[in-house]
Amino acid sequence: MHGYRFASVLVLSILFIFVDLRFAQVDLVRQSLSYVVSPVRSLVSLPGDVVQWSSETFSERNELLDSNRRARSQILVLQQKVQQLSVLEAENERLRRLLNATSRLDNDFITAELISVDPDPFSIQVIVNRGAQEGIYVGQSVVDADGLFGIVVQVDSLTSRIALVADVNFAVPVYVNRNGMRSVVVGTGDLDVLEMEYVTDTADIQIGDMLVTSGLGGRFPAGYPVAEVIAIEHDPGESFAHVRARPLAQLGQARSLLMVFQQQQEPESNE
């Protein structure tokens, strides 16, 4: 009797796996299951939250004043940059109109907090506290203060799972900020190293070049910094150079993230 049950369960689970990989309908099942599991998740993040809360609550007045002062000066610097930015934006808009180009789109975003890191030692994914209820969708890009952080790979009702840029399944279309050369950056599984694919030996690329998302492929919004080139090796035996880059986002440390909503471009494409 156990044998029959086992066989049917096995068939069922293989069916589940394939349906899950092919169709999106299973996401509903997954979301309802995640309600059951969510207390576990919140309990796991509880000690960290308590430590953070208590360190915020019981920290020294001087420290608070200090961090407040630092934050203020940072705001000042940023505001000054924003002032320039608005001028530049307006100028860019005018120039684009002169060129008859479509105007750039601003992206909406919501903030998210990282709540846990995948316990599986062989994958680099994290879980954040925003889910389907906030309108998160699979394929959404996530950035932190310094650059592109990752992409949403799975959405539950209250949380969602993000694959980091350094994931091996990850490839981002980028261009070199200095000269506009297009390329693709892929993850290596190491948090500190990305690789550039198909860069010819003669290509104009230097150590320190910043790589910025190009928006080609329509998956990532254009113009977010991704990585900085840290090493270039030319192997005479190979047709492509071996270029390594360091992700700009704080993959190992960031807690506050921004989830970018890409705007629908249908009305724009008619022009």
């Binding site: 049950r5 086992f6 689970s13 589940f16 796996i17 997954r30 299951l33 994914q125 790979v153 799975q154």
Partner: peptide, 27 residues
């Protein structure tokens, strides 16, 4: 086997594997 399968489904949604993977493993 059946209950183990259900536990596996929950575990799948915890660790983010395709639904049913740990269901198969635990059964």
């Amino acid at each position: 086997v059946l209950v183990s399968f259900c536990v596996g489904l929950l575990y799948d949604s915890l660790v983010g594997t395709p639904l049913g993977l740990y269901g198969a493993v635990f059964s």
